[in-house]
Design a protein around this nucleic acid. Structure first.
Lengths: 220, 220
DNA sequence: GTCTATATGGCGATAGAC
DNA sequence: GTCTATCGCCATATAGAC
């Protein structure tokens, strides 16, 4: 993505590049925190810069403007999520288990959860800079989860007849909605448990295999 | 709530009061639209005033500051929601049906849905002016719906054993999450239908009685 | 009850020194 | 690569005229 190394091939073997990269990830972490707290529109580049300990102009050297910064944060985050959930596993149950694990993991990073809740709501407006991103992201997630349900249905592991796409919609809705309630009152809501129970209500043999996820859940 | 009629009992029978009230509701409607579009933090009093067709100062005559305006909008909206959903009906099924009807009605007022999605996400931050409001509101709604499930369980109308509070949590989560997806892509999601199906998966005899709600759903 | 005018301050972004 | 300084804009809120 970045073009900072395009021109110079192998001259000047200084430690500069590593330093820049460290600074960049520091900025991304800070941006995550600020955007999570205040949303994108109200969160200020100034706050991010202060949190990192540099000036506004210093920050804008690394990310040319606020929108680019947001996009970088979202991409950064998506890489991580993709590593937790095997979205196109041959066994649909693995995907569902991955989602439960993700819910459990999320309970350990409230800042990230806050960012996504706030942003996905904000980005509902068509003129929001992340609107396209979220529209695409939801469509992709929906079809990936629908595929998982389809594979489970083919394997005869669904106890009732369900429309895969609609089951995917409900699954995502449940995950999103649980996050809001969890953020407002963390003692009342166990996101991973509710999600696992939801799956358990129409998928066979998911519960027994999901112990790893349950262990993770106790970290919260 | 308002104190504009407190002092003067019956003197000066002019049309002034009515005019003020009309202006006030016009402001509330505009505020709803602006806050829905941009969220509370980014939505500006200036935009609201412009939309109504008065000046900023003129608006601030009716609502002393931005926070008071937000509170008025939320109260205004809650009155309406309460009139749709019988939260403590003796028959729990009536409450659930009310929720499905509410989901169907919501599909006809995207601005309101947007407001609540954006605000509830924003208000997740403890320092948000509406944080207390949403915390309390979610707790109240949760216990009301839990009561409905409890009554249904007592009447032997639940097909599986469920914890009333957890069922309430999932119900609310589903409703909230469906709203985000619906706002992003209104053709893919039918909020009322998904909610009704969810209830149908463990409540008996809800489907047959809910025709009125289904009719409403087709308005979207 | 509504206006204009203004005080005060935060915002994103740019220019140019080091 | 980071800084200071600054521009131009928009925000909430107040003061005072009409």
């Amino acid at each position: 993505m970045s073009s900072s190394t395009d021109a110079q091939p192998a001259r000047k073997p200084r430690g500069e590049y590593a330093k820049t990269r460290a600074r960049k990830t520091a900025i991304l972490d800070a941006a995550l925190e600020v955007f999570a707290q205040s949303g994108y529109r109200s969160g200020s580049i100034r706050d991010v810069a202060t949190l990192v300990g540099i000036s506004e102009a210093g920050l804008l050297h690394h990310f040319p403007n606020k929108v680019k910064l947001l996009e970088a944060v979202l991409e950064h985050r998506d890489d991580l999520a993709r590593s937790v959930v095997p979205m196109d596993a041959p066994d649909g149950a693995d995907t569902l288990r991955g989602l439960v694990e993700l819910a459990a993991y999320n309970a350990s990073v409230p800042g990230v959860v806050e960012l996504y809740c706030t942003l996905s709501a904000e980005a509902t407006s068509p003129d929001h800079p992340a609107h396209e991103y979220f529209t695409r992201r939801y469509a992709d997630t929906r079809s990936a989860i629908a595929n998982a349900f389809r594979r489970l249905a083919d394997a005869g592991r669904l106890t009732i007849e369900v429309d895969p796409v609609r089951a995917a919609i409900s699954t995502i809705a449940l995950m999103d909605g649980l996050q809001v309630q969890w953020l407002l009152d963390r003692d009342v809501v166990d996101m991973a448990q509710e999600l696992a129970d939801f799956f358990g209500s129409f998928v066979t043999e998911l519960r027994a295999d999901t112990e790893a996820g349950s262990d993770l859940a106790e970290l919260s």
